[in-house]
Computed example of a mutant assay.
Amino acid sequence: MLSATDRAVFKETMAGLAGVGYEPLVVRKQVVAGMNYEFFCNARVVYPGTDWYPATVLIHKPLQGNAVIKKISKIAAH
Rank of each mutant, 00 (worst) to 15 (best):
Y47C: 14
N36V: 01
C41F: 11
V57K: 08
N66F: 06
T50K: 15
N36P: 00
V57M: 11
A43N: 13
I69V: 09
P54C: 11
Y47L: 15
C41G: 09
V45D: 10
T56I: 14
S73I: 07
K74N: 05
N66A: 11
I72G: 04
V46Q: 14
A67N: 07
P48C: 13
L63K: 03
K61I: 01
N66I: 04
K70D: 00
Y53Q: 12
N66K: 13
H60A: 04
C41P: 11
H60F: 10
G49V: 11
G49A: 13
R44Q: 14
G65C: 02
G49C: 12
G49E: 04
T56S: 14
A43Q: 11
I69L: 04
T56K: 13
I59M: 05
V46C: 12
P48A: 15
T56Q: 12
W52T: 12
G65L: 05
G65A: 02
W52I: 13
H60G: 01
V46K: 15
N42D: 09
A43Y: 11
I59N: 05
T50S: 15
V46S: 12
R44D: 10
D51S: 14
K61M: 04
G34N: 01
K71V: 02
N36R: 02
V45Y: 15
K61F: 01
A43P: 12
G49Y: 14
K70P: 00
I72Q: 07
V45K: 15
K61H: 03
I69A: 03
V68I: 06
G65W: 06
K61Y: 02
R44T: 10
K70M: 05
V57S: 08
L63T: 00
P62L: 06
T50R: 15
M35Y: 00
E38A: 05
A67Y: 07
I75D: 01
A67L: 05
I69H: 02
A55G: 09
Q64L: 08
P62E: 01
I59H: 03
A67D: 03
P48I: 14
K74I: 08
I59C: 05
V46P: 04
I75C: 03
N66Q: 09
D51T: 13
G65R: 10
Q64K: 13
N36Y: 01
D51Y: 14
K71H: 04
A67P: 09
S73M: 08
D51R: 15
L63V: 02
C41H: 10
K70C: 04
Y37F: 09
L58H: 06
L63S: 00
I59E: 03
A67F: 07
V68T: 06
Y47F: 15
R44V: 11
T56R: 14
I72Y: 06
G65T: 03
Q64N: 01
S73R: 09
E38K: 06
K74H: 09
K74F: 07
F40Y: 09
L58W: 06
P54G: 11
K74V: 10
N36L: 05
Y53S: 12
G65D: 00
G65E: 00
V45M: 15
S73L: 08
P48E: 12
V45F: 13
T50I: 14
V68P: 02
N66P: 08
K70S: 03
R44E: 11
N42G: 04
N42M: 10
V57P: 08
F40Q: 08
K71S: 04
A55E: 10
N36K: 03
A55T: 11
K71L: 06
D51E: 15
F39L: 07
P62F: 10
L63E: 00
